[in-house]
Design a protein around this nucleic acid. Sequence first.
DNA 1: TTGGAGTGTCAACAAAGCTGACGTATTGTG
DNA 2: CACAATACGTCAGCTTTGTTGACACTCCAA
Lengths: 165, 165
Amino acid sequence: MSDPIRSENLLYLTDEQLRQGIEAMYFAYRGFTADPDRILESMAYGRAHHRAIHFIHRAPGTTVTNLLDILGVTKQSLNRVLRTLIEDGLVESRVGTSDRRERNLFLTEDGTALERRLSDSQRARMRTAFREAGPEDVAGFRRVLEAMMEGEMKRQYLSLRESGK
Amino acid sequence: MSDPIRSENLLYLTDEQLRQGIEAMYFAYRGFTADPDRILESMAYGRAHHRAIHFIHRAPGTTVTNLLDILGVTKQSLNRVLRTLIEDGLVESRVGTSDRRERNLFLTEDGTALERRLSDSQRARMRTAFREAGPEDVAGFRRVLEAMMEGEMKRQYLSLRESGK
DNA sequence: TTGGAGTGTCAACAAAGCTGACGTATTGTG
DNA sequence: CACAATACGTCAGCTTTGTTGACACTCCAA
């Protein structure tokens, strides 16, 4: 308070600003998941299925263990989801070529179609939000989110980011 | 592609950019909830308890119905959480003064202490992220998140925002 | 050939959502 | 005043998605 320049610089770090940031994350995340949730609830699927489909699409041929690392759930939890997706013909599990213990996961044609339907709805909302805000704000959005990730997750995010062209 | 100026302006709206935004939201949200989750798991509580505590702290004296609207869950779901919090002496439920059918919810001293512990950890992460990014980025972060909310949730977010000084 | 890693399955359970139905106290209205 | 509506709590039962523990199979590598 004794230094007006310094305190003005830090006004965006007041507890009230931080709390608004927290609430913004909470309400925005609900919006973020709302569209895919509506599609999924009409089928027998939930968010867990969506996450699996998303990352298999993103990294085709990924192994079960790798998916476990990305999703941060237990093998049993993922396996239950994966089993229904395989039974329903959305995901294909191929025995690994170099290491035959591993299973490489791929989306089938139907799986790809569902992935597109889900991500279209989510991208549409993201696109609207991005367009409404503008490129500068989007850059800030990205930088703040990246700074909010935990170390290991950030590593995974960045490595996915690099692999995506 | 025929108009380089127009296409450069819209480069931040490519599908790859949008997908990275989606993944950033996913991984950042996990970081966002990680600290309170660690505190809560040591007790018998979960995220649902955290949300109730947060919004009771934010709007002391709020009614059950109002909390239901904010959290978007069913009465039974909220009631289960609320009951344990009241039993454990973290939340107090007072009969309404003007309308005795209503229950006004308040945090007790213990409840306030837990709220502080939880929000301190979450604010610390938010503060670090905000500081790392800077005020411009934080403004962008906020604008994009607000544009991502659904109508009703955005209304609630803004009304909470106004009530907070 | 044997130990360990990767994978999958079974059983049992918990947290936290949901629906539907019902009871009670209170309030507002005809 | 009588009755409908509201706010709240609760019972029963179901779903999804997470958990732990135990165990079997395949296969690679030392």
